[in-house]
């Protein structure tokens, strides 16, 4: 995000300054609570006056988020938060805009809006809460639900193939993609701050547990006892190593990635290294496609590159036109090129 260098309007802010007076109405035990707390936690560190911050959301459980932030907020239409945010950010480039969406809101009904916002590289931060279910409508499968998933609307299993949010974002041209999970406070805070710093669309997928309609959907991946074996923590410049004993790694065999045990002639130098800033998206594509159980699930920043930013181009065009033509005069415009007198 483009952080305006502006003096704070009040004394240094604290987490409490970002807590609104609204009662949080998510189900007890929902993963959303922890995401909210960690967003509120990092907000003061951004050094942005809170009147310049706007949270925009669509429809769904996650999209209630803006009501709980004591900033400006816009709870919009199902799927359309990216379009609302686009108009807001283009009109007001000075604002720091966050977008909260879910797997249904962002990838199903709002797939088109999300796609085009990513393509344009609008300077906003996206938090996509992925719980692989429709919570607010009480338990239908979502576009990220596993094929065969039994839900109220699919008593014999979902026939749909799931969508991979990272690959979706990447193919739309996203300049910042990252993944984190709702029980990892430290990881979330790091990623949120990175996302806030990035200029252009920062797209963060958050694995989030819906303890009512899809309890434990990510437990096989991030449950504490198995986490280290099933998660690949990404750090720029470091080899892909994971496991409790840090004894496993990922290397390329031809064009195919494979999990290998370290030792017995295989060492760190044989492994793939993370290059978060690579202009070429091959590695990011590879990382995005890693899925449990064949591979550990990558957590962290998968890709971060610079590209032109939608709103900035519009501002630049206005500047250029003002230089070329001077400030428009309404009278001249109304008169047009050919005037006659009656």
């Amino acid at each position: 995000m483009n952080i305006p260098v502006k003096p704070l309007s009040s004394v240094p802010l604290t987490k409490a300054d970002f807590v609104s007076d609204q009662t949080v109405r998510w189900c007890p035990g929902c993963g959303d609570y922890s995401i909210l707390a960690n967003v509120q936690k990092i907000m003061p560190e951004l050094n942005i006056p809170k009147e310049n911050i706007v949270f925009v959301s669509g429809i769904g459980c996650s999209s209630r988020f803006p009501y709980y932030m004591d900033t400006y907020g816009l709870h919009t239409l199902h799927g359309r938060a990216p379009a609302f945010a686009t108009g807001l950010k283009v009109a007001r480039p000075d604002l720091n805009v966050w977008l909260v969406t879910g797997d249904g809101d962002g990838l199903s009904i709002g797939g088109n809006q999300l796609l085009h916002m990513l393509r344009r590289n609008l300077d906003v931060n996206v938090l996509l809460f992925n719980n692989r279910i429709y919570g607010l409508t009480k338990g239908q499968y979502s576009p990220t639900s596993e094929q065969g998933k039994v839900t109220k609307s699919t008593p014999f299993g979902s026939p749909d193939m799931p969508l991979n949010p990272m690959l979706f974002a990447l193919s739309a041209g996203a300049t910042f993609i990252a993944r984190t999970f709702d029980v990892d406070a430290k990881g979330m805070q790091e990623i949120f701050k990175e996302a806030a710093k990035h200029k252009g669309t920062s797209f963060v997928e958050i694995y989030q547990n819906c303890n009512i309609f899809n309890d434990g959907t990510f437990a096989p991946i991030y449950e504490r006892s198995v986490r280290e074996e099933r998660i690949l923590r990404l750090k720029h410049g470091e080899p892909f190593i994971f496991g409790k004993n840090r004894n496993k790694g990922i290397r390329l065999n031809g064009l195919k990635p494979e999990v290998v045990e370290l030792g017995n002639g295989t060492n760190e130098n044989d492994l793939l290294k993370h290059d978060q800033y690579s202009k070429d998206s091959t590695l990011a594509n590879l990382l995005s496609s890693f899925d449990f159980p064949a591979f550990p699930v990558p957590m962290g920043v998968l890709r971060q590159v610079r590209n032109s930013i939608y709103g900035e181009i519009i501002e630049q065009q206005i500047k250029t036109q003002l230089e070329e033509k001077g400030e428009g005069k309404l009278t001249d415009l109304l008169r047009g090129t050919h005037v006659w007198t009656n």
């Binding site: 816009l74 945010a85 686009t86 108009g87 809006q113 085009h116």
Partner: peptide, 26 residues
């Protein structure tokens, strides 16, 4: 543009009005 006019060719009709409303909020 030299009147400060910003135009967005949106991805669809819904996005177009949504962006307009977003800008009105701003």
């Amino acid at each position: 543009k030299n009147f400060g006019v910003k135009t967005i060719q949106a991805e669809d009709e819904i996005a177009a009005i949504s962006s307009s409303i977003g800008s009105a909020f701003g």
